[in-house]
Design a protein around this nucleic acid. Structure first.
Lengths: 141, 141
DNA sequence: AGCACTATGCTAATAAATTAGCACTCACGT
DNA sequence: ACGTGAGTGCTAATTTATTAGCATAGTGCT
């Protein structure tokens, strides 16, 4: 027998929580969007299932405690239950340990390589000063 | 009804491929380890199932094309089928777009914040020069 | 030879994720 | 008043992931 072959091998996930593929895909979308309705999420998926399926997932993810919703008029607007910054940091940590042998320098290098053109002078300056700060922080230890 | 509640909400995943939770957990372990036997993987899991289960997962992941194995004497040694660097970059990209609004600067800031103490002077120097390189690269455009 | 250990091959059972579908409500326009 | 569209509530079916278990082979030891 051959397995269903789990679709595009190059679509990464990088999200927290130990969830099924759809669940994580949807969590990712909500993280990206910040706050989103079922329709928003549906539109954000490259691989969209039915509208119903998305709603069901959202409901389940809320049941599991990963999402919250507030009512905006007639519709539900979902957002992550956990603090986004927290989750992002946690994802970074995991990324480091999984792909970069825990080396922040290596990871930053990869990011800079990846982004190269997307960086403004202002951002580069900001990064420089962050590094200086890290250097300083290291001294008094 | 209440859902099984998908365990520690703070264990992130950050790995590529759209897989089930165990599958991804195991892929992550293999990425971290580079090459690993079933026993290695088992030992690397914080949440270990049975040895049998791990073996089955590895077999399936290979069937799906995510892993390869070579025989080392009596045992199988698994390694990722895809180029690790490739996958790492892809994971970074996804991390950026999901949690940092596509902003490399923001992500780097998060990493530096996370790593803070783990950075040697040499690494900091290396990062500085990477940034300078990016600055230079931007000029001639 | 027989035992313990570690490995794989394979299969079947269970749990979980994923999907679609239908019923209902509310608001709005005709 | 009625149809239409966009929303939710809920459930049942299916597919996939996950697990454990048993049979078998080799190796080394006593």
């Amino acid at each position: 027998m051959t397995r269903p072959f789990t679709r595009e091998p190059t679509v990464p996930s990088t999200s927290p929580h130990q969830l099924g593929r759809r669940e994580r895909q949807i969590m990712d979308a909500v993280y990206r969007l910040g706050r989103a309705t079922a329709a928003d999420v549906l539109a954000a998926l490259p691989d969209p299932p039915s509208y119903s399926a998305v709603r069901a997932m959202l409901r389940i993810l809320e049941e599991k405690g990963h999402l919250r919703h507030e009512q905006d008029g007639p519709r539900y607007v979902y957002r992550p239950a956990a603090d986004a910054g927290e989750v992002g940091r946690s994802a970074v940590k995991h990324l480091l340990s999984t792909f970069f042998n825990g080396s922040a320098a290596q990871a930053v290098a990869a990011i800079l390589g990846e982004a190269r053109d997307g960086l403004s002078d202002a951002e580069l300056d900001r990064l420089s000063s962050l590094i200086d700060a890290a250097r300083a922080g290291e001294e008094d230890r």
